[in-house]
Amino acid sequence: MELTNSMEKLFEKLGDLKSFFIYGQKLIPTLQKILNFMQDTVPLLESVNKSIAESTSKIPKATNQLHSVSNATELATTEILDLVDGISNELNSIFSKTSELKNRLQKQKELAEKLKSKYQNDNEIDEFLSYSLFDDELCFVDASSNKIQESIMNITIALQVQDITAQQLASVNHLINSIQEKLSGLLLDLNGKERESDKSSSQHESITFNENARYVKDNQSQKLADSLVAQTNGVKSQKEIDQLFSNKNE
């Protein structure tokens, strides 16, 4: 009886073993596929590793180039401002000279009028009076000079775009540096090395910026600022300011 039980258990175990072998046979192709996949993956991982290393090494160059662009535009803007200042100075000379000319012509006109009243039948005085009045021409010079001055001011306003784009570029640089830090970390993890802080990537990080800097002339932000400033008029204490903005800042 005991022998029969033992044999039954043995056959049961053999059955399990057979099932295992059958399962194993079925599993072998799958395992082979996994092995092949892993073999294929190794060069792929090496390629990814290489690609990350290449990208990481290029990032400092990219940030330097962006920084150079920012510096170059600042230099160019300064040169434009120098030229604008030069034109502005010339224009001021024109304004001053036309003003002087107007005064002198007015005096000449007054003298001619006096002469006219003295020598009423003198045609040459009439002729002088008709030639010496340059009112229209002077008005034209004034109007043109004012237009040039307005254009100069518009150029100056437009040049504020340099500061705004410099902040946008600094923001992009900051983003690129963050990506570089992550990629460098990933690369070191893949190579099994310990992370070290990379100071070269953040050499331009001291440049401060507003990531939301935009060159827009719709005045919406200015109107908002004006309305908030108006609300603080007459408010003296910090407590009053805190109370004023306690709900608005949420």
Partner: peptide
């Protein structure tokens, strides 16, 4: 360049007299 509401309020809290 900071034109967000919270920025303006922060500046006013620091007691700037006006804001452009």
């Amino acid at each position: 360049t900071r034109g967000m509401k919270e920025d303006i309020i922060e500046a006013l809290n620091a007691k700037v007299n006006n804001y452009i």
